[in-house]
Amino acid sequence: MPMWRWLICGVLGLGLGVGSALAVSGGLFSDAKLVSGRWSTDPTVGAAAANPWLRATIARVGLLALTKEETVYFNRDVDDDGAKLVEGCTYALSGEAIQTRWWSITIYGADQMLPVNTDAASSIDATRALVAPATTWTGTLSPTRPTTPGPWLSSKGGGTYSLTIRLYNPQSVEKSALQALKLPSVKKVSCTQTPASGGAH
């Protein structure tokens, strides 16, 4: 029997196995189990009982996560209309008080790192957004500093990016409670370039 058949099948098989493992752990086929609006989370993140595939995914895209009792991480990479979040667009953020001890929204690029810029606006947190006695807030997500008041999240250098909201010590981690949370909305206001030409770093 010709050895080349074994060689071809062996190399292709190994490549398929390793490639699929890297694709799955990179979140390519991620199917978060819990959705609240356009935000989604996997409640098993950080749990010791997480399955090997989820554990591999966490190691690559969310290393050193906390358990849901300590922190729930919701993510989104689309605006309220379902379009991808891109550096070239400006978005209006709005939210209200959330039943959690403290929260913060952080922007991450495709490489899961903070976009490289010197704007000092990589996150918005409850202490800055909701100054007592306010119970609602509005802000801006854009690549340049806005002229409108309110907290600013800079997308400069973000390319096609995602947002993560951390909810520390949420009042309840029950599925129904998490689904019912009124998490911040992200509405597109304007774009200066097409999504495909969004900057990268």
């Binding site: 099948c9 098989g13 398929l16 196995g17 591999a56």
Partner: peptide, 20 residues
């Protein structure tokens, strides 16, 4: 050879997931 390739695919997948 195809069965061998499929076996390597499964082993490669599981080993990579386990090692990551």
């Amino acid at each position: 050879p195809l069965a061998f390739g499929a076996l390597l695919a499964v082993l490669g997948h599981l080993l990579t997931i386990g090692l990551i």
